[in-house]
Design a protein around this nucleic acid. Structure first.
Lengths: 238, 238
DNA sequence: CGAGGGTTTGAAGTGCATCAAATAGTGTGG
DNA sequence: CCACACTATTTGATGCACTTCAAACCCTCG
C-alpha cells in the first residue's frame, strides 16, 4: 500500500506520481543484528528507509578500525546521497539492532527532485539541518569531555523538554554508544560512572533514570555553544 | 559587471534572470584580518561570496572558547544556508586574513532554487559533497593523531597529485591552523616538529617543503578510511 | 550448566593540554 | 634605520584524560 510510504515525513511534499513509481519497485527487508546492509563504494541504484530499528553508518580503514558516521532510527533514510556521489554509497551500513527497511529505487527520487521544486527545497532543508548537526557533533568532540558527551547523548534521547525526571533505555549496546561518541568501551564505562556520581542519575543496566534533567543540562551543555538541548530538529535524511 | 558573478562555479547553472536580480543588489566588501563579518543567530537576508581571502566560520560558548566550523577560501560561499535555518546564520564569520567579499541578497537565491531545478540539483550536490567532507573531518579527529592531521592538512594544500616535491605556504597563521585541526598552538608546534622528523619535510616559517609526497601520504593517510589524498572535490558552497 | 559476548575494573602508558617563560617576528614611530 | 611594543611561535615542566592491555565479572541463551 502507498500509505506505507506516505507516512514518512521525508516524503511529505512528494507528488502522487512519485509514490506510484516508488510503489512499483518497493521492497521490504529485514536485517538481524550486525547484518551488513550495504558496502561503501558499492554501485548504488537504491536507497533505504528505516521502518523500524537502528542502522549504523560507518567507514573502515584497511586495518579494520571503523569510524562511525551516524546511527539512524525509524523514519530516517540513507543511501539517497549516492545520487550525488556518482551512484556509489559514501559509507557502509549495517543493522545496529534488528531492523526492517524499505528499499526504493534512486531513479524516481532523482526525477522527483528535478520535477518537484518543493521537494527539492525540503531535501535541501534536510541536508542543511543535517549539516548543522554534524557541525555540532564536531564541536562536541572538541569541547566536551567524555562524561559530558554521554550526558548530552542522554539528553537527546529524552523526549524534548518535559521538565520532570526521565527514564530512558539505551537503544543499542554500550560498546556502540561508546564509539558513536568517539570513545572506547572502557572509557564509556568509567565516564558513565563519573556522570552518575556528578549528576545523580540512576543506572540499571541499559536503563537510565535522569532524576534532575536541569542538573544534567548544566553539567553537559555548559561546554557547548548551543545553549539547551542541542537537538535542533532531527534530520530525516541521511 | 555580471561577469563578476558568472565566474563563480557555484553559479554555473544559474539563469540569466538570477544574475540580473543579483547584479541589482550586489555589494563588494573588504575586511581586515580578524574583522567580524557576521554573527551567529543574526537575522539574515544576505549571503556572501569570497572573491579573495580566507574566512573563518565558528561558534563560541558563553565562556568565549570557540569551535571552528570551517575556514573558507576564494570561490566558496557562505551564509546561504540561512535560507534553511529560519533566516538566521548558524555560525559567526570573521576574516581569517584580509579578504574581499561579494554580498548578495538571499531572496533571489531562494527563487532560483525553486525555479531552476538544475541549480537546485547542483546545490544539493554541493551540500552532499560538503557533508562527506564533514564526515571525513570527524573521522580524522577520531583516527588520526596530531602529526598525522597536520600531514593530511598539508597534503590537501598541495595542488592535487603532482608527484614530485611540493612547496606550500600556510594560508593563515599557525595558531589558526592548530584550532582548525582541533589542537592547541603548543601541540601544533610540537607535532609539526615530530612530523618534520618522521617524514623529512622542511619547515621555514610558514613555508613548508614536502620533499617526498608519497612518504607523507603513507605517514598521514594510513590511519584513515579513504586511501589517498582525501580531498574529494572541494566544496564550493558553505 | 557452560559458552560467549558484553561490561566492568585495575594497572600502566601515551598524547595532548596547561601553565609559564623564553624566543622570534612584525609593524610602528621616532 | 633602529628601538620598542606587541603578537606569534617555540620550549620546558607538569598534569590529566583517555587508551591499552589484561583479567574478572555478568548476563543471556542454548
Amino acid at each position: 500500500m502507498i500509505e506505507d510510504l506516505k507516512k514518512f515525513p521525508a516524503f511529505n511534499t512528494c507528488s502522487d506520481s512519485f509514490f506510484n513509481r516508488m510503489e512499483r519497485d518497493k521492497r521490504r527487508l529485514t536485517f538481524g543484528r550486525r547484518q551488513l546492509i550495504l558496502l561503501a563504494d558499492d554501485p548504488a541504484d537504491r536507497f533505504y528507509l528505516i521502518d523500524r530499528g537502528w542502522v549504523k553508518l560507518f567507514r573502515e580503514t584497511i586495518e579494520g578500525t571503523e569510524a562511525i558516521i551516524d546511527i539512524l532510527n525509524t523514519g530516517q533514510l540513507f543511501g539517497d546521497t549516492a545520487l550525488f556521489h556518482d551512484d556509489s554509497y559514501p559509507f557502509s551500513a549495517e543493522a545496529a539492532e534488528p531492523c526492517t527497511l524499505i528499499s526504493l529505487p534512486l531513479g524516481p527520487l532523482r526525477e522527483e527532485i528535478t520535477e518537484n521544486s518543493i521537494f527539492a527545497m525540503s531535501m535541501l532543508t534536510t541536508m542543511a539541518r543535517y549539516r548543522r548537526q554534524q557541525d555540532l557533533e564536531l564541536e562536541h568532540r572538541t569541547l566536551q569531555n567524555a562524561p559530558q558527551r554521554i550526558g548530552c547523548f542522554l539528553l537527546r534521547l529524552t523526549n524534548q523538554d518535559m521538565a520532570g525526571p526521565a527514564i530512558i533505555d539505551l537503544p543499542y549496546d554500550k560498546t556502540l554508544v561508546a564509539s558513536r561518541l568517539g570513545m572506547k568501551p572502557e572509557t564509556f564505562s568509567r565516564a558513565l560512572a563519573k556522570l552518575k556520581q556528578d549528576t545523580s542519575i540512576e543506572v540499571r543496566g541499559s536503563s537510565i533514570e535522569i532524576t534532575d534533567v536541569e542538573r544534567l543540562e548544566r553539567y553537559a551543555c555548559s561546554a557547548c555553544s548551543s545553549e539547551f538541548p542541542c537537538k535542533d530538529g532531527s534530520p530525516s535524511v541521511a
